[in-house]
């Protein structure tokens, strides 16, 4: 029994090598029905050397082999197409994540730098020459403590924010605000947006793209939802938040401390509708003409 199994296996292996004809017809005739060259009638593995006694085997063999190879070509084409598209799309998500990580680092660094920066105590002086300097955030808190508004320091703060965001301001719009969650009010909202580029065509048909001017606004939005709506309309954005503590003096001069949230949000420049945000333009920065 074991010997028979051995012969069966040997015959099978020999058939794979295309030698089944010799062996199957000789020592192991009973094994012939199991040999591979029975299947070879419809494939290209019969080698033609030992044609089978089927009336259509010779006429059909060439066509069958050709159809086999065409099926093989079809399968390989599908696999290759799949592999090609997989390779073309490989890493797209990774690329987006690396980019997003970089912009998150940028916005976090910008927000921290805004909050760490110093300012001269006397307006008009430079940091290098001023006899007395203070943290910008300390000056903002002091300004807010007087009358619960940031008015005296808002231009200094806006200038500082603009300076820190200037390296990316040609491509990005941004929003900076200080929000008090308890009273659901804004202490400060600054919005930097760039107008849509102007596309003009002169008489000779030459198309010229002029970048839009940038505008800085101070806004008084009615609620946080209106700002969040603006950011949603802007598309993909990067946000950084920091908790700060503001002080408010009451009529008797007692200080009340409460937590506020400083937020910096940036997005790729997109023309946006600012209706409903109660924005007032602070400054317009003309675009540099294209070189």
């Amino acid at each position: 029994m074991a010997l028979n199994k051995f012969f069966l296996l040997r015959a099978f292996l020999l058939n794979i090598k295309g030698q089944a004809g010799n062996n199957a017809s000789g020592r192991f005739p009973l094994l012939r029905p199991f040999s591979l060259n029975r299947k070879g009638r419809v494939g290209s593995m019969a080698f033609g050397k030992f044609p089978l006694p089927h009336p259509f085997s010779l006429n059909m063999k060439g066509q069958a082999a050709l159809s086999d190879s065409l099926y093989f070509l079809l399968i390989v084409s599908i696999l290759s197409a799949f592999l090609f598209f997989f390779a073309a799309n490989y890493g797209t998500t990774m690329q987006q994540r690396v980019e997003a990580q970089y912009w998150r680092e940028y916005s976090t660094g910008a927000l921290e730098t805004i909050l760490y920066s110093s300012t001269p105590r006397i307006a008009g002086q430079t940091l290098e020459d001023a006899p007395e300097v203070d943290y910008l955030l300390a000056a903002v808190k002091e300004d807010f403590a007087d009358d619960s508004t940031i008015d005296e320091t808002k231009e200094v703060l806006a200038q500082n924010i603009f300076g820190i965001m200037q390296p990316i301001s040609t491509a990005f719009d941004y929003l900076f605000y200080i929000y008090m969650p308890d009273s659901q009010e804004f202490a400060f909202v600054m919005l930097y947006v760039r107008e849509a580029p102007q596309i003009t065509e002169n008489a000779s048909g030459e198309v010229r793209v002029t970048p839009g001017n940038a505008k800085i606004y101070f806004c008084k939005p009615p609620n946080l939802d209106s700002l969040e709506g603006l950011v949603e309309r802007a598309g993909s954005s990067t946000q950084s938040n920091a908790r700060i503590q503001l002080i408010e003096l009451d009529e008797s001069g007692n200080a009340g401390y409460f937590v506020a949230q400083a937020n910096l949000t940036m997005w790729i420049s997109t023309p946006l509708n600012l209706d409903g945000l109660n924005c007032e333009m602070y400054k317009e920065i003309p675009a540099e003409p294209p070189s």
Binding site: G48, S69, L73, V76, S77, S80
Partner: peptide
Amino acid sequence: DDLPSLIPLLFALMMFFYVFTS
């Protein structure tokens, strides 16, 4: 006898290995 079938076979193999390498 198998020559016509070898052409698409070789073409398929060449295509696969080209795409695989790319």
